[in-house]
Structure formats: structure tokens, C-alpha cells
Amino acid sequence: MNININGQSVAIVATSTSLSLSELLEQYNAQLPFAVAINGDFVAQSNYHNIVVSSTDMIDIVSPIFGG
């Protein structure tokens, strides 16, 4: 299925009937460190594996910024 990640439509293969956020991040090859927001809400890392992602979700993968 196609999922909107950082404003781009990305083809992601669901290996089972539902796609978890951690599966998506693995396939997208997201490089640590990052935080993830689904539809504008940030998600705790501990929840990545039990969050089910659908094709209507907007995913944002955000890098940390500390510079001043």
C-alpha cells in the first residue's frame, strides 16, 4: 500500500493483514535518531510495534534539533 511519509507517497508492503509502525519504519529504512508523528501526534517509541498504520495516515519522521 502507499503511505504518506514526510509528505511523499511511499510504497510499503504489508507482510500481514495489518501494518505496524515498526514494520513501516524498517521498510522505510529510517535512520536513528528520529521521532514519529501520526496525523500530527507524536508517538512514544515503546508503542511503535503495536500501532497499526493505514493508507490514510500521514506519517512524519522527524530528526532531533539541538543547535542554537
Binding site: 536513528l32 521521532a35 530528526s63 532531533p64 534539533i65 539541538f66 542554537g68
Partner: peptide
């Protein structure tokens, strides 16, 4: 609450 969403990497300019 924000910074713990990421790992512990430091970057400066």
C-alpha cells in the same frame, strides 16, 4: 517529553 521521543544524539552547527 519531547527529547525522549528521540535517541540521545548531539549535533551542533
Amino acid at each position: 517529553c519531547l527529547s525522549q521521543l528521540f535517541g540521545e544524539q548531539q549535533l551542533t552547527c
